[in-house]
Design a protein around this nucleic acid. Sequence first.
DNA 1: GAGTGGTCTAGACCACGCG
DNA 2: GCGTGGTCTAGACCACTCG
Lengths: 254, 254
Amino acid sequence: MGTTQLETVPEPKYWHLKNVIGEALDSEFSIGEILPNERDLAARFGVARATLRQALEQLELEGRLQRRRGVGTTVAPPRMGVAVGSPRQNWPGNDDDWRTVDCMQTLAPVAVARLLDQDPARTVHLVRRSRVSGGQPVAAELLYVTESAVPELSGIDAPAGPARARAVLRELHRLDLEGEDRSVELASARADDAKELDRLPGAPVLLVTTRYFAQGRTAAVSMATYRADTCRLTFGDTGDVEIHHGAERQAQAS
Amino acid sequence: MGTTQLETVPEPKYWHLKNVIGEALDSEFSIGEILPNERDLAARFGVARATLRQALEQLELEGRLQRRRGVGTTVAPPRMGVAVGSPRQNWPGNDDDWRTVDCMQTLAPVAVARLLDQDPARTVHLVRRSRVSGGQPVAAELLYVTESAVPELSGIDAPAGPARARAVLRELHRLDLEGEDRSVELASARADDAKELDRLPGAPVLLVTTRYFAQGRTAAVSMATYRADTCRLTFGDTGDVEIHHGAERQAQAS
DNA sequence: GAGTGGTCTAGACCACGCG
DNA sequence: GCGTGGTCTAGACCACTCG
């Protein structure tokens, strides 16, 4: 990465900087390599640190850099493809790479109650799961299950921990899944999700909301929060993929 | 929106600010209403403008605010649900809300050539389309079509404009679509896409990459860039949706 | 304790939209 | 021309990680 002077064009400096550094990442750095620290980089490019940071933020958003406080900035590996709802990915049974955390009985937020098409005053089972892929935490999920979908659990009072969560998932799995309904949007990580995903609060995430239908009703709603910097969500019945990576930058470059 | 003092906790000011303003948006503002300008707001909350801006940026990322240079900051309407690939949404025929822009013959970027499983030295048809929903531009698409998928066009030399684009789509539509393959990831808008989407370069977008299979091969690849601030991508065969909105904030609030 | 990224400040000027 | 948000600066201090 040279000490190149920025041009004097009307384009923002941070935009140039982002492109210059982005190209340097492709040609002069390898995955996992650590960059010089922000103060040095800023001095080298002759800009204020805040400006340099604006460029790095963009590159991090695009999944090309990873920054950790107290450690440094490293070159990120290509985003990993994470399968979302191809062959009933999340419907229990395939505990693939989901780790069941715990379970409690609570009131669903009104927005979730609406998705469940249920009275907000009725309690639901709330199962928390987290998904790990390639050794990295990639998603935190809140799974809201209506009590009517898993009636056998009404009497059970297992401790509100993993055991109970597994019981709920087991009962849920007994149902015939009739369909699902999904949406994806950009959000920022809530404090607790951020912690679980090893990010700072407010980090960009992809919020995947799924409704599961069974017995002619909405049986459960999942709100899964995926790290936007490290994940590429994949859909589709052909479960191969993993072609598309790294070099896609050239298709998307300015 | 009061002149509330920020607490003296170790949480970042901009995070508090974001929450405070976010709550004010729900309770004291209506959609489309304009907020006081940044300098006033910063003074009112007793913070530097940069700090206030950090909070507003987050809210904009979450689709709750809309900021336009030279105009001001307004309260954004709830994100619109945009159907992505339920009943062959993009496969020609349904010109739904897609507007065909133009078409040219060019070399595909190597990443796209790889997705097409084709020699990067072979040219492709590149159709540009843009999608409008609710009067707003929501997506810009680059559709790469292999020449072998639409052989009838080899001899044609219509002017490289909309007419030619429509011809390509027409031929493409003749094929039997055998399957598709989709991925969604966060990206930042390239300069030209940004312009088309009425955003600044680098604005956060959802990049939807789709491979279309026909005749046992990959016939086309679409790279569609959706505004992340205004769109919620919806999937699934039950094409209703539009329940889930606004109030979901309570499900996602810190 | 040294070094990193994260937050925050108080200014300045620029680019754009609109009357 | 005025007011808006967008960019940029040069500093300061904080929170975290690690040797």
